[in-house]
Write a protein that binds this DNA or RNA. Structure first.
Length: 427
DNA sequence: GCGATCAGCT
DNA sequence: CACAGCTGATCGC
């Protein structure tokens, strides 16, 4: 059995300490109410939400880390049997606003930064705080190993700030004064968007009962309701959000759906080649409003007019990843999302070892129209094209068989890593 | 019956 | 290809 010191978002046995970045399911695979390999370190908000996600979990295993403070964790080196101290600081990851953190570790191994899922928006006040916290913790030192959220680590991914995307949502709602509004969300995350909508439009927002409980735990008491009659804006679980449900709702009342999503395209169950109504790319890039009514009067072929896809992302886009890498200047780097065939090692874009700055400069040279960018886009578009093509051939009631050929779905594996091993386990 | 894992879907 | 996550089938105990 290999001997490990630290695991982040990974819950198998073999580590002396376990760290949780946030409570999204792909980071808690392997955790259960019966898990007992503690101690488990997490943020205060995550600890507060823990009983919701894992009723019956022994809370005595939790160790709350306040943001921006160094904690010293004594561990035992299985190599020498002697005590070794690992210091850790939690820093706001600005992912799901509810308690997601990145962890900065310091020890005999140097500095190791594990971002978890994170969004590195330059513009926001919170981002500036996080930047200061990180720089002051590093105190001029460089990060030796960076484990980074590489979800959108590809130059093709470009989207506006969440504030900009939230304004687009407001535009959509304002353009439909007589409509009911359905917004697809998950169990955790996108709270800031909903609060912003409620504030700007001076309305309450409906959520389902379990979500209301979470909102209350997060300290939102007068913004959300479970009474349908109080509001025309409802946030519903994303898995219950589909073209069919929105179309069915339109038999009762005029209704539109809004899907806030980092993905620039969203497929529906009626016809997977249908793309939801989205702001045009240039308005996304320029972070400005677009004329919804004008667009709707001249809809492009294949757009679904009842559902709007808004590029509201809790993960960093490519340029933000670039900014972050530039800031921490890691000697080495690896992506924490390593599951799918579209995985691209961040070092492909940002270089490896000390060479990364040259590669960074190079990657800035991928301007619109460059051959390199074209080839990457082509790679991405190919997959989309194949799926659209398959669906066109499939009758509406027939399931599309994704189990063969090049478009075979690759199951997303869990994230997380055992990030610190004793020397003898190398190689 | 229970938990873990996986397949399928949104 | 896929943000995050639900439901249901299956398997081993």
């Amino acid at each position: 059995m290999e001997a490990g010191l630290i695991s982040v978002d990974r819950w198998a046995e073999g580590s002396q300490s376990y760290f949780l970045t946030h409570l999204h399911s792909d980071h808690t695979n392997g955790l259960s109410p019966k898990w007992s390999r503690g101690p488990l370190f997490c943020s205060r908000i995550t600890a507060k939400l823990f009983p919701c996600k894992f009723p019956g979990f022994s809370l005595s295993l939790l160790r709350v880390l306040e943001l921006g403070i160094w904690y010293h964790v004594p561990l035992v080196s299985s190599l020498t049997g002697s005590e070794t101290v690992v210091s850790v600081m939690a820093i706001d990851a600005q992912h799901c606003p509810a308690g997601a953190v990145m962890y900065l570790f310091r020890g005999a191994f140097g500095f190791m930064l594990y971002t978890g899922d994170f969004r590195w928006e330059a513009s926001s006040e919170k981002a500036e705080m996080g930047r200061k916290m990180l720089l002051s913790a590093l105190n001029g030192m460089k990060v030796d190993t960076l484990h980074i959220d590489n979800t959108y680590c590809n130059p093709s991914y470009s989207f506006p700030s969440r504030k900009g995307a939230a304004k687009q949502v407001i535009d959509v709602i304002a353009a439909h004064p007589e409509h009911d509004i359905i917004i697809g969300i998950d169990n955790l995350g996108k709270e800031d968007l909903l609060v912003y909508i409620a504030h700007v439009l001076n309305i309450k927002i409906w959520v389902w009962p379990e979500r209301l409980q979470i909102m209350h735990l997060l300290g939102f008491h007068d913004i959300f309701t479970t009474k349908t009659s109080l509001t025309r804006v409802r946030a519903v679980p994303r898995y219950s959000f589909s073209i069919e449900t929105i179309e069915d709702m339109n038999e009762m009342r005029p209704t539109i759906g809004i899907m806030p999503s980092g993905l620039p395209w969203v497929v529906g169950s009626v016809d997977r080649s249908t793309r939801f109504f989205s702001p045009p790319l240039n308005s996304v890039q320029k972070n400005c409003s677009w004329n919804i009514n004008e667009e709707r009067d001249n809809p492009s072929k294949g757009l679904h007019l009842l559902i709007y896809s808004i590029p509201y992302s809790d993960h960093s886009c490519f340029s933000e990843i670039q900014d972050f890498v530039n800031l921490v200047q890691p000697a080495n780097m690896r992506g924490i999302v390593s599951s799918t065939s579209c995985y691209i090692d961040p070092r492909y874009f940002f270089g490896r070892q000390s060479n990364y700055l040259n590669s960074l400069r190079e990657s800035f040279e991928w301007e619109e129209g460059s051959d390199r960018l074209k080839s990457i886009r082509k790679k991405l578009d190919y997959g989309r094209y194949k799926i659209a093509q398959k669906c066109e051939k499939s009758p509406r009631q027939t399931r599309v068989d994704f189990s063969c050929g090049r478009v075979r779905r690759v199951r997303r594996k869990k994230r997380g890593a055992k990030i610190l091993e004793d020397q003898r386990n190398d190689g």
